[in-house]
Structure formats: C-alpha cells, structure tokens
Nucleic acid binder design. Structure first.
Lengths: 207, 207
DNA sequence: GTTAGCATGTAAGGAGTTACATGATTTT
DNA sequence: AAAATCATGTAACTCCTTACATGCTAAC
C-alpha cells in the first residue's frame, strides 16, 4: 500500500544527495546528465518532489553556503538520517518495478550502495523482463506473413536484436556478480534456450 | 496549440483501425503485440480514448457482427471519413515528438501510410535526437574520473553502444529512403519488398 | 539597458495506470 | 460450480510536463 509505484525521481534525488548536499538547480543538471540517456526531469517535478521530501523530513535545508553564488540565492538540500534510512530501505527491497525501462537505469546507477544479493535479483528481474519481450518479438517475426508490413517487420527485427544485446550484457554482469559474491547461494539454472526459431543473424551465444 | 503532446495511443488506434474495423479487446491485443516491445496500454486508457474518438466522430460503432462471439457482445469500431482524414493529417505533419522514444516506434510502424519526405524527416529527427544523446553520453564517459562509480560508467558505456547501434540502423534506413525517393515518386510503400534486409553490424564508423 | 545564465517556484492539466465493477461463454 | 477467457467500462489516482511568474547577477 505504501510504495506501489515507480517513484523514480525521488530515488534518484536520494541517490544524488547521498553523494553530498546540493541545491535544486544543480540537482536537476546532474539528474539529467547522470541519468542522461534515460530521462529528463523538469523543475516542475523536481521542486515539488523536494518539497515533499522536506515535509517527510528526508532532507533538510541548509543556509545557502557562499562560494560563488552567481544568480539568485541557493537553497541547499542535505539528506537527514531518516533520509539515509529511507534510501537504504528502498535499495534493500527488490522492487519488481526495477525491471522497468524507466527504473532499471536508476537502480543500476545506485548499485554502488546496493547489497550484492539485491543487485543480482534486480539484474535477473530485468533479464527476465527482456526475455519475455524477446519471446514476443520472435513470435511476431516468426509468424510474419508475406503480406506483412516491411517497416513493422524491420522495426521488430531491430528491436529483437537490441533486446538480445541487452540480455547478453546482463548475462555478463550476472556472471560477474555471481563470481564476486563467491559461494553462490543462488539456484538458477541458467540453461540457454537455444533458438531454433529460424532466427538468423550472427546470433552468438544463447540469450 | 492543438496537439502539443504525444497522443501516441490515439495515433496507434487510428493506424490499427485503418487496417479494418475492430472491437476494443482485439484492438488492445494488437496494440500490445504490434507495438510490442515499446508500450503496453491498459483498457483504462483504451476505452476512454475510443470514447473520445467517437465523440469527435473519428470512429463509428457498428452493431456487433456475429462470427463467433465468445463472451460478452462486442462493439466494433470503424474509421469514419473524418477519421481517415485525421490520420492522414497526423501522418503528414512532421511532429517533433516523433523523435521521442515512446513515439518513434508508432510513427515508424505507420510508415507504410506515410509520405516519403515525411518518413525521411522523421528518421532524421530521430537520428539527431540520438546523436545529441550520444554526445552527452560520450562527454560523461570521457570525463569519467578515476573515482567514478564503476556501475554508472558501465551503464553509460553500454548505453552509448546501444545508441550508436540505433544511429547506424537509422543511417542505413535513411540511405535506403534517399535511394528510393531519388528514382521515383515516394508514395508506394508496399511495392518492392526491398529485401536486402541483411543488416550488418560490422561497420562501426560514421555515426 | 537588455540579454543571457543562474535559481526557485506554482497552477493547470495531460496521459496513462490500478483497481474495481459487470457480464457472457466455454472449459474443467 | 468454479475457473478461465472474452469483453466493456469507470473512478481515483500518480507522475510528470508546460507555461508561467519571480528575481538576482554578470556580460555585451
């Protein structure tokens, strides 16, 4: 009932403020370069978010430290103890939403503060999501009738290749995580389902 | 001032209904397999959307044609003349939003009904968007300090590679479009079948 | 003295989701 | 009779965007 949806922005803000205090403007800049390719947040979402976090006392405001305050005076936000706890809690639970396109990047970026077992769960969750997607794409490609739209086909072909690439990337990451965590307590049969689907391109290694 | 934002769902519905009349449930299924990898719409957005289109008289309802009506009686939607016009208009204007991640796929899928020059504009718009993204990613990668987060770095590295791949794909498509429109008029999408679909991921340059 | 960049904020609203409510038919 | 599948629909809500409003400082 509490956190049933994404809440990407707040997680990202918590993550950034974990590195150190920051004011809103800078927060937004780093948000949009750190998370760069994935999302771009506007002030219209950032400031209300900060306001909410302030109300919940996950952050506190510091008086604008000087330095070289060009422009209007800054409001510097800093994580409170409660804020740190909240971030830890968010990073400890294996949110299924972490497999979402919009969330995975943020969670991955915060892997540095995430427990090893949670990292593994998130990577596997993401991989499973992509495998489902790939399966659907392959079904469509396999059943592509001759009258099919050439553009749609090409889009799905390229989409399937992209998904395959990301799955292979995840496989490699998962392998590394398992190796690092040493005694693998996990029991996941990682058998490759070889595609006999007549799916062509230089398909190295099972995804 | 009228259509300042995406409106992906309505465009997709117009596109599907252009193929022929359909009822809501089927529409949603096709929406989520056609657009497959990209989006998944729920009934909670589809039915209100259809209602709006009905109000604007872009679609009309037909009495549930029989066939094998398993389940509750169907409501079959059909494009009106105004609906066809509206779709044509949407596909004629080069919406900048077509470069968005969520929109590009839908627009591309409808390339079969899109004029050649508009296709080219959309492909180029998408490529420019991705080039900007790639530039930002490369900046981040280049300026990655030694103390940088290894996970964030890896994410951006993989992200940059993915974007490069998509840009190369777009380059190839743009090349083909130019070649086709050079010889003849651009309004015959279904002809030819174009099948040299062998896209080689070998060339790494000139993104 | 006006433009440009830095900095904070709000009001209105768009697009879509979840969860629910209903109902018919077929399969188990 | 229960469960699964097909089928339509609504209300409440979430997350975010756009467009606007404000104000301060530096450079041209």
């Amino acid at each position: 009932m509490s956190a049933h949806r994404a809440r990407v922005l707040e997680l990202a803000v918590l993550g950034l403020l974990h590195e150190g205090p920051m004011h809103g403007y800078e927060l937004r800049k780093r948000l949009n370069s750190e998370l760069g390719a994935f999302r771009a947040f506007s002030y219209g979402s950032l400031y209300p978010c900060l306001k909410g976090m302030l109300r919940r006392e996950h952050v506190s405001v510091a008086p604008a430290c000087a330095g070289s305050p060009r422009g209007r005076s800054r409001i510097v936000y800093r994580l409170t103890a409660a804020g740190h706890d909240h971030l830890d809690r968010l990073l400890s639970e294996v949110a299924p939403a972490a497999a979402d396109d919009e969330c995975f990047g943020v969670h991955f970026t915060l892997f540095g503060h995430t427990r090893g077992d949670v990292r593994l769960h998130i990577l596997e969750g993401r991989r499973n999501r992509l495998r489902e997607r790939l399966e659907r794409l392959r079904e469509r490609l396999a059943s592509a009738p001759e009258h099919a739209d050439a553009y749609a086909f090409e889009l799905h072909r390229h989409g399937a290749e992209s998904v395959e690439r990301e799955i292979r990337w995840l496989n490699e990451l998962i392998r590394r995580e398992r190796r690092c965590s040493g005694t693998g307590a996990g029991a996941d049969p990682d058998a490759g389902s070889e595609d006999g689907t007549g799916f062509r391109p230089s398909d190295q290694s099972a995804v």
